[in-house]
Design a protein around this nucleic acid. Structure first.
Length: 563
RNA sequence: CGGGGCGUGGCGCAGCCUGGUUAGCGCGCGUGCUUUGGGAGCACGAGGUCCCCGGUUCGAAUCCGGGCGCCCCGACCA
């Protein structure tokens, strides 16, 4: 049933008052999604068609690398999650509940536990490997802050796949297969996308990439340069040079009353912020004090720092460092003993200004190589204008639409997924996990291609191939022609939404452009008079005409050429 | 979890500060007539627990207290 007179497509002229993101506004206005609660959305018929198109593309490309589709439940016994350790490791994001008998249950936010438990039971031998399993299943996550319509929700469908291999080399093969499949998937979806290096996070894997679709509503920042793409969480780049004062034979104290900020000291000393050393005291683990140093114009990147430390940390309170280092606002590395120092690699000069570890004083002429002991690290956040291989990077917001992750034996060991090798030796299975959010693909497509009139779907995702607008009243020649064309287009295998409603042309054109199907055909009086049909290509809104004779075939051919 | 904002027919809003006829406006919806290639016109009409509970008051959408819901910024994001 794809006659608009009967189709459940509640379009709106005005976006919901509380919508901010473009995809949120347009998907609601176009009648594709409706909100049920915070982070909870229904997909209406047209929206669900788009979602299903994305799902099918993902399915085809995973099947093509030999992955096997299955289905695992959302409701899980807590025991599985206790075994993997995540029941305690994850905070409020995991929905926990009890069944009628009082047994602890969880709503799965992903399916490593379940799939690994199956593999643990079934796989005995190296002959059973490698193996790729996947499903499309609802994920439940009690997000602290759902936002932007369908971009970040508490319940959503995810494609998650899992590779099982005998060793790290095997994992690399399964990982590369996914990388290639993902590249094809996002190309087929018609999106602009990047594959970026990403943080392995608390899951502690051995490698990860994210697939990012750049757009203003994105929650992540991506650093991009020719041949380089990385999440800013992990990006590294060559810093912009900074002009340093002349080197001195030894650090020299000078008075800086009340100057506790980088800006104040830089102004006072008449040097750029980059000529200062910013000192950031942290507590690693329980109570181990360390001092992290970055250039004055740089910021410490907590994720990079966490990775460099290989441990969790927190900023130190003043009471924890003032005795061992100095008063807040005036701390620096010179003369500090018993506190390990981490020096960011961007501090490669020989004459910086640093705190003197006493109130109202700083030192100039500080040379890290000469004046204190340190371990060199890369823990700063890159900024636009830094370079990679001589190319300036830019930083763009992007939506994460997929990720691929080398898990290693993080789940196979606690859940007992092992195999016997040729010599009868038991080994843990090496795993990878790979996610894609079809809803985010839909939202990203809206964000990237919408114009002032509405959505412009890529052909591969559009809810319908052709939007047929009938302007004639029932009983007219135009109406009969539109009916006939509708049948002919469908006979060619095209998905057609047919606007057979009563009503003016303006409203119909507006709805067609809002809904965003790639090709619009209009049948009215003019059509018969002119002997040709108006065809509007949604992307760019360029109008063409198709001869009435053989119109369905001609429209089909035109459609095939569209983005 | 911190900060800010909002809650009034399906959608978007006004009214609230300064309590008082029947709670208004635009869009949408129904019926009829006219209109039909860019969100039509006229007429008539339907549709509301003013988020909930309690309080103040002769009288509460409006004032007070509590609660709930939703949005935005930040923190968080296996």
């Amino acid at each position: 049933m794809t006659r608009l007179s009967q189709y459940f497509l509640p379009t709106e002229k005005q976006p919901p008052a509380d919508a901010e993101a473009l995809s949120h506004k347009l998907l609601v206005r176009a009648g594709m999604i409706r909100q049920v609660g915070a982070g909870l959305w229904s997909w209406l018929p047209a929206g669900w068609r788009v979602h299903q198109k994305a799902v099918q593309i993902v399915r085809e490309e995973l099947d093509a690398i030999g992955a096997q589709e299955m289905l695992m439940p959302v409701l899980n016994p807590a025991e599985l999650w206790q075994k993997s350790g995540r029941y305690d490791a994850i905070g409020g994001e995991l929905f926990r509940l009890k069944d009628r008998r009082g047994a602890d249950m969880v709503l799965a936010m992903t399916h490593e536990e379940v799939v690994t438990s199956h593999v643990a039971q079934v796989v005995r031998s190296y002959r059973d490997l490698p193996l790729i399993l996947y499903h499309f299943q609802t994920k439940e996550r009690d997000e602290p802050r759902p936002r932007a319509g369908v971009l970040r929700t508490r319940e959503f469908i995810m494609k998650d796949s899992y590779t099982f291999d005998r060793d790290a080399a095997g994992l690399d093969v399964g990982y590369d297969k996914h990388r290639e499949a993902y590249d094809r998937i996002f190309d087929r979806c018609g999106l602009e996308w990047y594959r970026v290096d990403s943080d392995v996070g608390m899951m502690g894997g051995t490698g990860a990439h994210e697939y990012m679709a750049p757009c203003p509503a994105g929650e992540n920042d991506v650093a991009l340069a020719p041949g380089y793409a990385a999440n800013v969480e992990v990006a590294s780049a060559t810093p912009q040079p900074v002009e340093l004062p002349e080197a001195l034979d030894a650090p020299e104290e000078f008075s800086t009353p009340g100057a506790t900020t980088i800006e104040a000291v830089a102004t006072l000393a008449g040097v750029p912020a980059g000529a200062l050393i910013k000192a950031y005291p942290i507590i690693v683990g329980e109570d181990e004090l360390r001092l992290v140093l970055v250039r004055g114009d740089h910021k410490v990147n907590d994720i990079k720092l966490g990775n460099a430390l290989g441990a969790s940390f927190r900023p130190a309170h003043e009471a924890e460092f003032e005795d061992r280092i100095g008063p807040a606002g005036f701390i620096g590395p010179v003369g500090v003993s018993g506190v390990p120092i981490l020096l960011d690699a961007a501090l490669d000069g020989h004459s910086y200004i640093a705190g003197a570890n006493k109130a109202d004083a700083h030192l100039r002429g500080v040379d890290p190589a000469r004046d204190f002991e340190f371990t060199q690290v890369d823990v700063r956040s890159v900024v636009a204008g830094d370079t990679v291989d001589g190319h300036e990077i830019r930083i763009e917001p992007a939506i994460e639409i997929g990720n691929i992750f080398k898990l290693g034996t993080r789940y196979s060991v606690p859940l007992g997924a092992t195999y016997l090798d040729e010599d009868g030796q038991s080994h843990p299975i090496w795993m990878g996990s790979y996610g894609i959010g079809p809803a985010r693909i839909c939202a990203a497509a809206v964000e990237q291609f919408a114009d002032e009139k509405g959505i412009s779907w890529p052909r591969s995702l559009a809810p319908f191939d052709i939007h047929l607008v009938g302007l004639g009243k029932p009983g007219t020649d135009e109406a009969a022609l539109a009916d006939k064309l509708y049948d002919e287009l469908r006979a060619l295998g095209l998905d057609v939404i047919y606007d057979d409603r009563e009503g003016g042309p303006g409203a119909k054109f507006a709805d067609a452009e809002l809904l965003g199907c790639p090709l619009r055909l209009t049948i009215g009086k003019r059509t018969i008079e002119a002997g040709e049909i108006e065809a509007q290509v949604r992307r760019g809104r360029e109008t063409r005409s198709v001869p009435l004779e053989g119109a369905a075939e001609a429209a089909h051919e035109l459609w095939k050429t569209l983005p």
